[in-house]
Simulated scan of single mutants.
Amino acid sequence: MSETLDTPAATAAVITEPVPDLQLQLLMRLLDREQRSSLPITLTTSSGILHGDLIGHEAWKADWARALRQVEGEGTNLLAEFPETVDQGLREMVADDDASSLPRWIHLRDATLVMGGAGKVRLSLWRGRLADVSGWALGRPQ
């Protein structure tokens, strides 16, 4: 028996999201193998052109933890542990078969965001959703 458009299965909402670039995902997975590695990269996003050093998740997490330790005030000791706490929570949520999935986030160190007419924004660390990157090239603009 064939389904018609009137059945609930045929009219159920389908959630779609942009598909990240497979080659960029594999490049990031390669960088995750060596925490000290980085590559100069330029990204195109809806916010503008972003360039910096592409780093793996572990390198970004270590830099983020270092930056959080420099924050002053009460409770800062909790902030220093926050990156590892987040990763631990995510590991517990993800099933074993999903653990080998491709990266969904991209990380840059010493990044510069160039926005049309608004100038440049410099960022020591940047994290973004890979699906929001519409184009990329190795190297930085000259």
Rank of each mutant, 00 (worst) to 15 (best):
Q88E: 14
T42I: 07
A95T: 06
G73F: 09
R91Q: 13
A131G: 11
H107K: 01
T16A: 12
S47Y: 10
N77L: 10
G56I: 00
Q70L: 15
L43G: 06
L79S: 01
M1L: 07
E92V: 03
I49M: 10
A137N: 12
L30S: 04
K61F: 03
A12V: 12
T85L: 14
L54V: 02
S37M: 03
K120N: 11
A131M: 10
L50C: 04
V121L: 13
A95H: 04
G48I: 05
G89Y: 07
R104N: 09
L26T: 15
H57G: 03
E17P: 00
W136V: 03
L138W: 14
H107V: 01
Q142S: 13
T11H: 13
S124T: 13
R69G: 15
Q23R: 15
P40Y: 00
L27Q: 13
S100P: 02
V14H: 02
H107L: 03
W136S: 04
Q142V: 13
P8D: 09
A13C: 03
I15A: 01
L26I: 06
S124Y: 02
A10Y: 08
L113T: 00
L31F: 10
T11V: 04
E92T: 02
R104E: 12
T42Q: 02
L90R: 14
S47E: 15
T45P: 00
L113E: 01
L5V: 11
E17D: 08
E74Q: 09
V114Q: 07
E84L: 05
P18Y: 06
T4L: 11
A62H: 09
T112L: 05
N77F: 06
I106E: 01
L54D: 03
R33S: 07
I55Q: 09
T7V: 03
A80M: 07
A95M: 02
R109E: 12
L24H: 11
E58C: 00
L50V: 04
R33I: 06
L78W: 10
L108S: 06
T76V: 03
G119H: 03
G89M: 10
P103F: 02
L5R: 13
D21E: 12
L5F: 11
L108D: 11
A10P: 05
H57P: 00
T4R: 10
A111R: 07
D32N: 05
S46H: 07
L5P: 01
